[in-house]
Design a protein around this nucleic acid. Sequence first.
DNA 1: ATGACTAAACCTTTTAGA
Length: 262
Amino acid sequence: MKIATWNVNSLSVRLPQVLDWLAAQKAEGGVDVLALQELKLTDDKFPAAALAEAGYQAQWFGQKTYNGVALISSTSGQDVVKNIPGFADDMSRVIAATYPDGQGGDIRVIGAYFPNGQAPDSDKFVYKMRWLDALREWVASEMQKHPNLVLLGDYNITFDELDMWDPVGLKDTIHCTVAEREKLQALIDLGLTDSFRLFEQPEKSYSWWDYREFAFRRNRGLRIDHILISQALKARATACVIDRLPRKNERPSDHAPVVITL
DNA sequence: ATGACTAAACCTTTTAGA
């Protein structure tokens, strides 16, 4: 099965590209679950009918102007959770659901839009740290219940210098600070694995490029969209790739999809 | 150049993204 994540930076603008991408993926077996971030629309504006027309179900958790997440799937999601239980948050950043794993069991999928953090000395950074702590606590409990678990989305954190186009110039800037990486490592320490690095990858692989200064053309990007998997799924993973093609579209999102094959 | 694009809403200007 295939599970993917894509920060679309406005689903209203990007819906045609999402539908095209899903259709193109069908030639290669199809995507079972696609986690979207930055819908930037309220729940009543979610394009459920257009997705149903294309053969997909969906769970969504929107918000006006900012944030908003969804899970688009070929089968229906169960036990849906929106945001981190017990963590008061006025932003729509997390959606989780359980799906059949194609082998008689099931798989828990948690799609998340991690806070940006803006700058290491900002209030938004403090919120990012608190959010990351709350996420870790909740994911730990989810892992107790679900051996097959995928935590994927726009993490807004790089793992290391390999994930940065300019490791020197960007050292200790937002997405690349020690404090953020410690929180990311705390998720790994729960028993999760960065599936992308399980496989040989092209040099300078990134998932996001700034809209400005022809950053995509010059491959000046960051790898901040990740697919973390539990131990049980690590044994099943056969590939994880960043699909740069949609970034070449007209009016692209600034992020590219990441896809894991299990 | 606290800039460069893009998107949305408070819409000819601001906020946020990363």
